[in-house]
Computed example of a mutant assay.
Amino acid sequence: MGYQRWDKIEIQYLIDNFEFKDIEIIAKELNRTKNSVYKKAMRIGLTKRVRRWTEEELEFLIKCWGKYSREKIAQKLNRSSISIKKKAVELKLGPQRISNGDYLTSGDIGYLLNKDPNLIYRWLKSGYIKGRRFGDKKIFQIKPKDFLMFLKNYPNKWDGYKARIDFIKPYFYTSNKCELPSWFAKKIELDEQNNVKRCIV
C-alpha cells in the first residue's frame, strides 16, 4: 500500500482524538496503519498529555470495574482504554476479564471467591450456580445476577473473609441502586468475626 495523503478532515480528527483514544482505534477509524497515525501525530506536534487522576475518577473506576467494560469506563471518563488498563493494574483491580461485560466464567468466579475454578465447574454441573454452556468446549457462561443468587442461596459454600469482596460489590450496583443488600453485608461481617475468633484460638 503506497503513501496516502492526509486530508484536512483526517488531520482534524487526529487532533481532536489523539489525546483520548488509543492509536489502534484511531488507525482503524481512519483506515490507516498505526505507524501512519503515529508518524503524522509526531509531525504535527501531537503528544499525549499526562492527566492526573482525580479522586472522583479513581472512585468511579474502582466502583465500575467489574460492572462495565473497559471501553465504556474509558468513554465515561473521557480517557483512553490504555489509560484505564494501566490505572486498573496500578490499583490491583484484578484481571481484565472480570470487567468484560454480561457474563462470568468459572475462572472468573473462582478468582472472585478465591477458590479452585474446577470446584466452581463442579458446582455449575451440580446446579448450585445457574449457567449455560458456551460452544463445544467445557465453558459455562454465568450471568452476574445468577452468581449473586448463588451467593445468597448458598452462603455456606463461600467465605466472605477470603473472597475478593471489593470486586464482587460492583455486581450489586445498578443505575438506581448503589447499596449492598443486608444479607451480603451480614455474611461478610460474620465471616470476619469468625476469622478473628480462629486467629485468637
Rank of each mutant, 00 (worst) to 15 (best):
V89K: 14
L58G: 15
E19C: 03
D146Q: 04
S175T: 09
A74E: 04
N100W: 05
T174G: 14
I11A: 02
W53I: 12
K48D: 12
K125Y: 09
Y68D: 10
K187E: 03
G127E: 04
G127P: 06
D159T: 02
Q96D: 13
N195I: 06
Q75E: 15
E55K: 12
D7I: 00
T54Q: 06
G2A: 03
K145N: 10
L148R: 06
I129W: 01
E57T: 02
K21S: 00
I109S: 08
W123T: 07
S99Q: 06
D7N: 11
L148Q: 01
R198I: 09
K87S: 07
F134A: 15
R164T: 11
W123S: 08
L190G: 10
A185S: 14
S69M: 01
P155G: 08
V89N: 12
Y171I: 04
R198K: 14
N35Q: 14
L30P: 03
E19I: 09
I142E: 07
K48F: 02
I11H: 01
I44N: 05
K145I: 08
V201H: 10
E71A: 12
K72F: 15
R52E: 13
D159M: 00
I82W: 11
N78V: 12
Q96K: 07
R43D: 13
D146H: 10
K85V: 13
K76P: 05
N176P: 05
I200V: 14
K152W: 10
F60C: 07
F167A: 15
R52M: 12
D136K: 13
N17G: 06
D136G: 13
Y13K: 05
P95Y: 00
K34E: 05
N195Q: 14
P170I: 00
I82Y: 14
Y68M: 11
K197V: 15
K137C: 08
N176H: 09
N153A: 12
L61Y: 01
Q12L: 00
S69K: 12
G110M: 05
E59H: 12
F172N: 06
I129T: 07
S175F: 10
N17H: 07
K28F: 03
I200K: 13
K87Y: 02
D146T: 03
C199Q: 13
E90N: 12
K162S: 14
I11E: 11
P144H: 08
I23Y: 06
F20T: 08
D102F: 14
Q96F: 06
N176C: 12
Y3S: 09
E189L: 15
Y111E: 08
D116F: 01
Y121M: 15
E57A: 05
K85L: 09
L119Q: 15
V50A: 08
G2R: 09
I109F: 04
M42E: 01
T54N: 04
K21P: 05
R79A: 07
V89I: 11
S106A: 11
W123L: 15
I62A: 10
Q141V: 09
K34D: 05
Y128E: 04
W6V: 03
D191S: 06
L180T: 10
L46C: 04
A163D: 07
R198T: 08
D146R: 06
I44E: 01
Y103S: 08
S126M: 09
C64A: 12
E59R: 15
D22F: 01
L30V: 02
